[in-house]
Each structure stands twice: as C-alpha cells, then as structure tokens.
Simulated assay, not measured.
Amino acid sequence: MIGALLLGFVAGVVARMLMPGDAFRHMGGPMSWLVSLGLGLAGALVGYFIFTVLLGIGDTDIFDWGGIIGAVIGTMIVIPIAGWFLRRQNLPPTG
C-alpha cells in the first residue's frame, strides 16, 4: 500500500514536471501533492493496462517500482485528459 502511494506520487511529480502548462500548474502545497498522487495512481493503472495487458511487456504487478516508466507515461496520458475534464466543467483550478 505504501509502495503504491509512493509510486503514484513519484510518477505524478515526474510527469507534471515533464508536461509544460498542465491545468494544475497553479496549485501549491498539499493540494498539489494530492493531485500529483491521484494523477500518478491513475497513470500507473493506465501504464499497466497499456504495457502489460495490451503489449505484454513487463510483470504482472500493478504498483511495482519496475513499472515506473510505464506509470510516468500513463500519467502523461492522464494529465491532459484530466485537464480537459476540468476545463469542460468550467471549474477553475484551486490553489
């Protein structure tokens, strides 16, 4: 459980650093950490689905540190989708 949270947080932070101009860039403090964690966990699931289920690459552990690259790539897919939903709801990012 703690490993999954750490993986999600690291994947979320790295992906947000690599994605310039994401919809969550104005956030700061604990809210930014929670958003990074949530995006990272969702990205880890997306990365697992793409690489392990569809392509057959990697092991069968979803939240494993060996899948950090897939989790970051999955998070980079999730960030624009989450930003699109945020803009579609016309909700300004808090922070």
Rank of each mutant, 00 (worst) to 15 (best):
G3S: 12
A4T: 09
A4Y: 05
L5Y: 15
L6R: 01
F9Y: 14
V10I: 06
V10R: 04
G12W: 00
G12L: 03
V13K: 08
V14A: 09
V14C: 05
A15L: 08
R16N: 08
M17P: 00
P20H: 13
P20W: 15
G21D: 14
G21R: 08
D22I: 07
D22N: 14
D22S: 15
A23S: 14
F24V: 07
R25N: 13
H26K: 12
H26C: 07
G28C: 12
G29I: 09
P30S: 15
P30Q: 11
M31S: 10
M31N: 12
M31E: 12
S32P: 00
W33Q: 14
W33E: 10
W33N: 08
L34E: 02
L34Q: 09
L34F: 13
G38A: 10
G40E: 04
G40T: 05
L41S: 00
L41M: 14
A42H: 02
G43H: 04
A44S: 14
A44P: 00
I50N: 01
T52Y: 09
T52S: 03
T52I: 00
V53Q: 11
V53N: 04
L54P: 00
L54Y: 06
L54Q: 07
G56Y: 09
I57R: 05
G58E: 03
D61N: 10
D61G: 12
I62H: 04
F63Y: 15
D64P: 00
G66D: 07
I68L: 14
G70N: 08
A71M: 07
I73K: 01
I73H: 05
M76P: 04
V78F: 06
V78T: 09
I79E: 00
P80H: 09
L86S: 07
R87F: 04
N90V: 03
G95C: 12
